[in-house]
Design a binder for these strands. Structure first.
Lengths: 270, 270
DNA sequence: CGACGGGTTCCATTCAGTGGAAGTTCTTGG
DNA sequence: CCAAGAACTTCCACTGAATGGAACCCGTCG
């Protein structure tokens, strides 16, 4: 790093210079709260935030205070910090999530009622399936998914559907990296995945069985907007042992079509 | 559009001083997106953001770029900006919203199924009822409410329930200001409201009729946590013309109790 | 009691952020 | 077709806001 004659610590360690902008530091603080894995959301102490964000304590202290002042973070009685309501309020206003959810929810409810199984709504975001909504009864199978979670495209029903209808370069790109095998049943071989995608495009539904969670299978179908583009996917997650029920598949299709129609899709082609 | 740009003109047309911190300016930009009234969420041009945030265009340009880089804002094809998915992702992680929602949703679904009416879940936040969840079928009455919306405490079912169980100083404070009369039926007289609150505490339900929206009534009940504290309220919104149905009230109670029990409430007192 | 780990405050230093202005692109309309 | 204008982007000299090390505070533990 000969470029910048920036501040240099006299000590032999030669600590790295932090050239992040104030904004970047503020964001780093929020990112410290990104819930890992499927864990339940949590709280952090000031020091913990400082560590995760890679910031000096005093700086963290000041910036965290700014967040709290605005409502993006909340300080709890025990001194721990957590994400604040303001963030939630703004978050739910996000157009994609809000519009899709509002329109889709009634159909998802119908689907839940007729099948009594977990119902998922997801969109493609980057290289992941992002779960926008999840309905599930009191009982139902334990699952990794939750609203706001990201799950892989190749091992989930909604993921495969989204991938099947994604631009070719996205598919190319996705299959170029090695796909994680979560269970023995997970299909990870690129060509095998490609064959599945083709079949999904043909039949209009994806069926998965024990590729992410033991004991659970899923049936997923695409949601199209007015232009015919696939913008989301619905699925139900069922116990693997249940006998294959054509009614279930039909219900998923009906729901997907209902939402598509509500979005203005008129089955022009197909 | 709230808080006017913090500009203070020195006598004689001197330059304005803006003593906001970088963080405050970043927040002001996000706040520019706070959806007004009940309008559908929207997009803003750079110039519009600058105006609403009270910032010079070049500064706005730079800061908006930071937001976009992080994912808090998204630039659309037409050049307009809107809230970004990252914000949604973090927002749904907010503990209060997430936990309550997760626990309550199954019961809300039950309630929706048995009544087929709008179902609301709200908490008290500041001087407003903040709507955490809303289920509604395809048909159903048109409403002002939506997830993430804030509505007054005195003119909504959930609002009254929350107020009825709020600390006395909150009630005091709330009733000290003049309450807006949305419809002829809105009860705005402090003492009349107080009497209602007492009754709600006694009976355990609130009934409203055409106090916010013409043609719609609501039935609301409190949700308690393990300590017995009222942390939220559920309600259904029904057509006013419908004959009073004791089944509906019972369904609301059942839902509220179900959620309370799931939160660990054991009906110690009462 | 002393030490320790978390949190808070202080303040001299300096460099990141600022914003006016000039440059660029896209529209409008004459 | 070009001029006028609006919206956006880039530039850069200046400066005061942000920085972070250090000192301080406070509750807890052995």
């Amino acid at each position: 790093m000969s470029g910048k004659p920036a501040q240099r610590l006299a000590s032999g360690g030669g600590a790295a210079v932090d050239d992040r902008s104030v904004a970047a530091r503020l964001f780093a603080i929020l990112d410290a709260f990104a819930t890992p894995a499927g864990a339940t959301s949590f709280t952090l102490s000031l020091t913990a935030i400082a560590q995760r964000a890679g910031l000096p304590l005093s700086t963290t202290h000041r910036l965290v205070a700014e967040w709290v002042g605005w409502g993006g973070l909340t300080r709890q009685d025990n001194g721990q910090y957590s994400l604040g309501m303001k963030l939630w309020e703004l978050g739910v206003q996000t157009p994609t999530a809000r519009n899709l959810r509002t329109i889709a929810l009634p159909y998802l409810e119908d689907l839940y009622e007729t099948t009594r199984e977990h119902v998922h709504l997801a969109i493609l975001d980057g290289r992941d399936a992002l779960y926008l909504e999840k309905l599930s009864g009191h009982h139902a199978v334990r699952l990794t998914s939750r609203v706001g979670a990201r799950l892989p495209l190749h091992s989930t029903g909604v993921g495969l559907v989204l991938l099947a209808h994604a631009p070719t370069d996205v598919v190319q790109d996705y299959l170029a990296t090695s796909l994680e095998r979560f269970l023995p049943g997970t299909v990870t071989e690129p060509d095998a995945v490609r064959r599945r995608l083709a079949e999904i495009r043909l039949t209009g539904v994806a069926r998965m069985s024990e590729e992410m969670t033991l004991g659970s299978s899923s049936i997923a179908a695409p949601i199209r907007d007015r232009t015919g583009l696939v913008v989301a996917a619905v699925s139900i997650v069922i116990r693997t042992t249940d006998t294959a029920n054509p009614e279930q598949e039909r219900a998923v299709r009906v729901a997907a079509q209902g939402v598509s129609r509500a979005l203005g899709y008129r089955r022009a082609q197909q």
